[in-house]
Amino acid sequence: MRTLQMTFDDDLVIELDQVVQESHTNRSAFTREALRMAIALYYQRKLIEKHRAGYLRHPVAPDEFSVWEDEQAWGDE
């Protein structure tokens, strides 16, 4: 592991200390997990944007899925 020096606002440090105390962890472990989650969310948002851009370039045709309407079983029959 590497050591990084970071600067935080005082109010954020107060909140961080409350959370780590309640969750029985420490600042470093909590921050590592928070960064992992933030990075995962970043890549998820990029993928969503990529999909959105693809559908904007190639929109769904009005009849694209209608060929499956006769095959759908909704369980209410």
Rank of each mutant, 00 (worst) to 15 (best):
R32D: 15
D76H: 11
Y42R: 08
T25S: 08
K46Y: 01
R45K: 13
E77T: 11
Y55T: 04
V60W: 00
R2M: 14
T25N: 04
H51A: 09
R45C: 00
A40L: 08
V60S: 06
E49H: 04
L16V: 04
Q5Y: 11
L4Y: 15
A73S: 14
A29M: 12
F30W: 09
A53N: 07
D70M: 02
E69G: 00
L16P: 00
L41Y: 06
A38E: 06
T3Y: 15
V19Y: 09
M1V: 13
D11H: 15
R45F: 02
D17G: 01
A73V: 11
V20D: 05
T3N: 15
E22H: 10
T7A: 15
D10V: 06
D76T: 13
A34G: 03
A61C: 02
Q72F: 10
T25A: 04
W74V: 13
Q72V: 10
L12T: 14
E15G: 10
S23P: 00
R45H: 07
A40S: 08
H24C: 09
W74R: 15
L56D: 11
I39Y: 01
Q5H: 13
Y42L: 04
P59S: 07
F8T: 13
L47V: 03
T25V: 04
D17M: 03
Q21K: 05
E69I: 00
F30Q: 03
I14K: 12
E64L: 08
M37W: 09
L47R: 12
G54H: 12
H51T: 07
G54N: 11
F8A: 10
L12W: 10
E77C: 14
P59I: 03
R32W: 02
L56W: 07
D11Q: 12
S66E: 07
H58K: 14
A29N: 12
V60L: 08
T31I: 13
L16C: 02
L12E: 04
Q5F: 14
